[in-house]
Structures are given as C-alpha cells and as structure tokens.
Amino acid sequence: MKKLSAVQLKQQKAVLTAVEALEQLATAELPGFVQGWFSLEYEAFPASLLVRLQLVSDEAVALAQPQLLLWQKRLSAFMLKRGVILKDMRKHLVFTSQGPED
C-alpha cells in the first residue's frame, strides 16, 4: 500500500472524525446499531465517499430506512464542518446489515 500524501491524510482525518461523530449518535438513537465504516477513493474525493452504518439485521435496516434522509443530512453537516461539501448527500450514506469483511 502506498503512503498517503498530506492532502489525503487530511481528507482521511475529516472523514474519520465525521464517521466517529455519526457512530456516537447512532449508538444512542438507532436500535440495533453495530458500527460505522467508510470507503473512498482519494483521487475522486469527495464524490467517492460512501459511509455505511451497519445494523444488526435486515429487519433493523428496514426499521431504520425511514430515517435515512436525516442521517444523510447529518453526515453532510459533519463533513461541511470539516470543510468538505457533499454535492448530493443521498449518495454518501447507506444503512446495511453487512460488515466491512462481507
């Protein structure tokens, strides 16, 4: 794996901070929340950012689905605080029952 540049490290830190803040909220507000994780391609940041909030089961995902827009707005707000504008917030956060290894 190649070493990240200073800009890439700054991008990674911004995303990590935002995802950690989302995880804290999700732990308190989303029943069945397991963990949050993200993937991104630095060359296409922020368009390539995808944050996943993992829930314990498909049933928990179905119950949380009506709140998806609220969580997408929260991610957008957390990223904006770190100087990153997400043009279409709906593309950057999903609920899933699969983990990062799946």
Rank of each mutant, 00 (worst) to 15 (best):
E20T: 14
F38K: 04
E43S: 15
M1E: 10
L49I: 05
L22R: 13
Q72W: 09
V56Y: 00
Q35G: 02
L63T: 05
A44D: 15
R74G: 02
S5E: 09
L70Y: 11
D102E: 11
D88G: 02
T17P: 01
G83D: 04
A18S: 14
V19M: 13
K13L: 14
T17V: 13
V34N: 03
A18K: 06
L70S: 11
D102L: 02
R90W: 10
V56W: 00
L53Q: 03
K87D: 10
Q11V: 05
L4H: 07
L16P: 00
G99F: 04
V84D: 03
L75M: 06
S39G: 13
L22P: 12
Q98W: 02
A21R: 14
L68M: 10
I85R: 09
E43W: 06
E43R: 15
A77P: 01
Q12S: 13
P66A: 11
K10F: 01
E43I: 09
F78G: 01
P66H: 09
A6Y: 01
Q65E: 15
L30S: 07
D58F: 02
Q98F: 07
E59H: 06
Q65F: 05
A60Q: 07
L63S: 09
E23C: 14
T17M: 08
R52M: 10
L93C: 11
L70H: 13
M89H: 10
Q35P: 00
P31N: 09
S48I: 08
F78T: 02
V51Q: 08
L75Y: 04
S57A: 05
A21L: 14
L69G: 07
Q8G: 06
L25V: 05
F45I: 07
D58I: 01
S97V: 00
K81I: 00
L4S: 06
A77V: 08
R90C: 12
P46A: 05
T17K: 14
T17C: 07
H92G: 07
T17Y: 03
L9P: 00
Q67W: 01
K87N: 08
V51I: 10
V51F: 06
L40V: 04
M1R: 11
W37V: 03
A6G: 01
